[in-house]
Amino acid sequence: MLTPHYIEGYYEEDNKRLKELIEEIDRKIADKDIKLYIANEVYLTENIMKLLKSNKISTINNTKYVLFEMPMNVKPMIIYEVVFEMVHNNLIPILAHPERYEYIKKDPKLVYELIQNGVLMQANYGSIIGLYGKKSQIIVKKFLKNNIIHFLGSDVHRQNSIYNRIPKIIHKLEKWMGKEIVNELVEVNPRKVLNNEKIKSKEPIEIKYTMIEKLIMNQ
């Protein structure tokens, strides 16, 4: 699944061009058993529905699932409206790497609220092994325990070595959480997204920090 950034006003890649590029790559790797699907990682904007309707951005494999991200530093006030708009239009938003946002690290209540509003969550493989810092690692593990993560992603936007490490990470996770749950995150749920099927998610548990975690997160 190819998810190039789409940042309104800064990084706008035309969807047509994207399709052409994907076709080109497809041709080049025709001999290998790899299939490419189009998608976007959309930077949160109030125009998200407009962009979708005008075909400037693409949902995941043209299904009802939309991958989006938010600003890193300050909670965007518009988030609830945008999510409502998407859900209202029969779309299912997926928030990319919730464990990386500063404000979520400080107060993870937002993630819980978003899930209640119909958002699904995708964590990064890299976060689990601490590529994005200790805080992200702590919180992603909490998320995984509390049924808050629905997918795992590589978050690769350029040449990166994370793919080599993914099997190890999966192995680690399987040991920690059990094969079934990991299989759901890595295999079942993504396939459902591709086929535009509904995902049955477990009831999320609200996150509460212990004193020590609070101390670490507030630093």
């Binding site: 940042i7 006003g9 800064y10 990084y11 949160l44 904007t45 109030e46 600003p71 890193m72 530093n73 300050v74 965007p76 006030m77 518009i78 409206e81």
Partner: peptide, 18 residues
């Protein structure tokens, strides 16, 4: 697209929302 720019753009969207 530096960290500062992102901060300012967030401010912009928040002001727009308010």
């Amino acid at each position: 697209k530096s960290y500062v720019t992102e901060c300012i753009n967030t401010i912009r969207t928040n002001i727009l929302y308010m």
